[in-house]
Design a protein around this nucleic acid. Structure first.
Lengths: 211, 211
DNA sequence: ATCAAATGTCAATATAAATGTAAAGATTTT
DNA sequence: AAAATCTTTACATTTATATTGACATTTGAT
């Protein structure tokens, strides 16, 4: 939902719309200023406000182009919102119970991530780098007690160490394979690994983009 | 556990929540006062009580920001949600902001992605694989006409081709470097490249996890 | 290509409107 | 009695609006 406009901002926007409709091109600052009976710099400031509020868009530093954005009328945002818990960080050695600790919650788009009882897990380490999963990413997970071959899963090893790896079913056990040549695949017996969920997505924020 | 609210405090809090849900921003004291049919100072006093009981949080001495808190102490999900447009294809000639090119919108967590006028761009291809950016990912971008060295940016080449690459400023031009040995860095003159934004995050859905 | 005109930007400053704060005291609720 | 609520009024701060002038860039005519 766009922020509401002040009276003045609405007036300027109306004028812009009218001009574009009449002449096909937006007016210059000084033309608009003369018409609205204010200074050109005042117009520039109001345009800045309009852009901040997403009613118009401009580009370049000295470009004269200006686009008027229509309301997309997308009223379904509230319905598409989904809130999921972020499970506390997974440090090797910590028992799973400790991971129930509150790591906050995350709002995401329900149309991108369908499913119920999803949870998020903060990735620690670079073992899945080649699968496009980096340190500090949030892995969006769907709870699951089983896994299919080649799926990326959250697995609990020896009931204490949780990890995100690619899953392979072997005749006599389970292989958890990292996606990074610096790490080696590990093979476990069926009773050593508990599948906790399947990774269905990734959310990476600004901090994660800096590495 | 938070202290219980009085009837009046609950009423004011409900009103605040409704406003945030409807308009996206909390009302001013006097707007709320008019709506609740009391004086603005009365509203201020109730807000004080609500803050003491940790149902809301405000900051600064004269700041207008107000956060509605969940019982976990986090900012309310409705207030954290942000809707941004998804840029579909970038077609020759047309600017990104030509609304017809929008491919819908995306809901995301404002506390993860701060900033105004963010937009999302669907990644095409594997050229940024080693930066953890895969085909079909949604790159969350902050609009910017410039870039600093080593930042990952959205660049428009020859006014028609939009691409996501790592940016390097050379003495006599711009290098756009892929993060994938199968691709080669490209060097352009200053007038061949338009920076459109900086990539501040990634959202990957279930489809993107299958490759 | 060159140059003048038109245009957009920026900074400093000023003013008005909107908004938040505080104090003092009255009324109501618990 | 104590706490919560309310009103009025004065004041402080922020935000929106406006002006002026110097400057950078683009446009268009020559």
């Amino acid at each position: 939902m766009r922020q509401q406009l002040t009276q003045n901002q609405q007036k300027v926007l109306d004028y812009l719309k009218q001009q574009v409709k009449d002449t096909g091109i937006p007016p210059s600052l000084r033309t608009a200023a003369a018409e609205l009976d204010i200074s050109h710099a005042a117009v520039a400031q109001t345009l800045k406000s309009l852009e901040d509020k997403s009613y118009i868009r401009r580009e370049g530093r000295y470009s004269r182009t200006l686009y008027i954005l229509e309301d997309t009328g997308e009223i379904d945002a509230a319905q598409r919102q989904k809130q999921i818990p972020v499970i506390g960080r997974i440090t090797a050695g910590l028992p799973m119970y400790a991971q129930q600790e509150w790591g906050g919650s995350l709002v995401l788009d329900a149309s991108v991530y369908p499913g119920q009882n999803l949870f998020a897990l903060k990735i620690q380490g670079h073992s899945m780098k080649n699968a496009g999963i980096l340190d500090q990413d949030l892995a969006i997970c769907e709870p699951r007690q089983y896994a299919r071959d080649r799926e990326i899963v959250v697995a609990l090893i020896h009931h204490e160490e949780a990890t995100v790896k690619r899953f392979f079913l072997l005749p006599d056990g389970i292989e958890l394979r990292p996606e990074n040549p610096d790490f080696t695949p590990q093979i476990y017996g069926f009773d050593e690994v508990l599948i906790q969920g399947k990774v269905i997505g990734i959310v990476r924020g600004p901090q994660g983009m800096e590495g």
